[in-house]
Design a protein around this nucleic acid. Sequence first.
DNA 1: TGAATTTGTGAAATCGGTTTCACGCCTTTC
DNA 2: GAAAGGCGTGAAACCGATTTCACAAATTCA
Lengths: 334, 334
Amino acid sequence: MTPKPRPTYSVIAKEAGVSEATVSRVLNGDDRVDQERAAKVLEVVERLGYKKHRAATALASGRTNLIAVVIDNDLSVFSDPFWGTVTSGISRVLMENELQTLLMVTSVSSVDGPVAHYLNTGEVDGAIFFQLHKDALVRKLAKTGLPIVITGSPHAATDFVFVDTDNFGGGHAATKHLINRGCKKVAIIAGDIETVAGHQRLDGYHQAYRELGRVPAKTLTAYGDYSYESGKREMTRLLNEQPDIDGVFACNDLMALGAIAAIEERGLTVPGDVAVVGFDDSLVAQTSRPGLTSVRQDIVALGEAAAELMIAQLRNEPVEPRILPTELVIRESA
Amino acid sequence: MTPKPRPTYSVIAKEAGVSEATVSRVLNGDDRVDQERAAKVLEVVERLGYKKHRAATALASGRTNLIAVVIDNDLSVFSDPFWGTVTSGISRVLMENELQTLLMVTSVSSVDGPVAHYLNTGEVDGAIFFQLHKDALVRKLAKTGLPIVITGSPHAATDFVFVDTDNFGGGHAATKHLINRGCKKVAIIAGDIETVAGHQRLDGYHQAYRELGRVPAKTLTAYGDYSYESGKREMTRLLNEQPDIDGVFACNDLMALGAIAAIEERGLTVPGDVAVVGFDDSLVAQTSRPGLTSVRQDIVALGEAAAELMIAQLRNEPVEPRILPTELVIRESA
DNA sequence: TGAATTTGTGAAATCGGTTTCACGCCTTTC
DNA sequence: GAAAGGCGTGAAACCGATTTCACAAATTCA
């Protein structure tokens, strides 16, 4: 009926004929302990199925074995499968390393809010943030020495540890593919240019043009907000102004689908008249008709990388930001 | 550079001119404390921005303020946006109640595995499980008195506390809608019948027929696995065998899209020749063409309800399982 | 008015680990 | 052969809260 009473150091120590201090040493890998005694302790630990009490350990050592994953409530958390997938990757890797994932879905905005306070006071050993609009909070926390990893690129060129998809490379590959398949006039529907990811995808587009020795006309760049509607709206506008556009790189799949709808409404065909490439290779890209050619990012790997960078920091190992490669998945739309 | 040193009871007590015991009483709502002294303590707490040390509190009180959210790694965790959305709802509500979410993405299979041990030994105050294939573990944990909530219906008719979408009602509404719009021969592509949700949706389909005083032919029931491919395959088969089918209820959106593909490949139109209804009202339902009529479940609300039931249990309030209503979202496909 | 409660309070024990410190024993060193 | 140094060890302090217990003061009851 009540939780199984757990053994404590006192029991282990008695059973193994040593002091509690020695038990602690053995269990924390202090190698100054006599081989035989250590073996005896381990044997008892094994036999009794002993596991340390988290709270007691945390209190005494100051380390909690808890890593916070902070997700801003203000973002489109509720509809976006992205963060959930990343988080599952994070959690799995952390668990394999005896760390637990503390999930905080909350409004991160305030530098002095409860989250800030919470992270500031040793309640967790580290924090993994999802890309933020403002990084004032993170900046402040970093000053306290709290290990931090950011999923997504931070705004300024700081020395934050981060993991991100190769947005630039993805944008470049998408555009290049359109050019290679013979498109003469490739437009782009960019996403929120305020985000680093949005900007980098646009940069990749420019780079692909540059390699041809050309510069895309400013009028070929449209700005959406990652929604289906914005994709459709912008595509309609682009085609009104420049009917000879024959390729489009939309910076996410939803906008790409919107663009396809706009193109077909005009009586044109995809990819016959206009080829379309999206970004994310989400479920909608796989199930739409025509199937959407899209830039795939390995989202689980992103989470795993974030966790690995956190673990490296905790071990005081040198840490470099990690950029994960993308892959162009070719379907019917381009 | 180092984390801000936090005040402790000893500081508060000294500052307020009382004992640490009294500080504890005030902070834990023990009302036997003199008004003035209590006020003084609260003033000091406020002024110093004091927050309890989690580990110390947990060690002394035996309560951790941690709720585990356990997700089986074996499930389709990595692609399914469902659990992430539910979890965000859970986390938000828990946080509002000063509880933290401990996320465990792991293989739950073993009754004696690390998860079992972890949950079994007072490391968390409660656990929220996602629908499981086998509930042996949950059953065992429940015996220890650990508060548990299950997201999704448990298999047997047990007294577990759970929250779930009204799958029966959703299946009923979907089928009814098809019948009402004039379909004479409505088929169903059921999902995994092993899951309770899958079974309930099928039951809802039957019920709608029953209300007409009819019983659907067995041959009108096909079984898929929730994938696009299975939807397409089963729809093709159904139409081969019974070309006069004029309505289909697919038990999730992906299978519905597969069905639509099969129908159109055959040269038939949706909804002209065959009307189609899906389940989930996921992103793909909203962006597909024709737009997919689908049964919407409020996934965030599901998470919130799970958290609320957990909190009620912790407060020793009476708790009833919660079934959340669905809503039929009508688009072009039916 | 005196005895019996009730009430508010602080000292101290407690939760289960970690870490400091001092001690005894054994090896070097000159 | 004595002083110096190193090593393994356990006793005890410590982490920061909660809770028990005893006691004095205030209240109630007879």
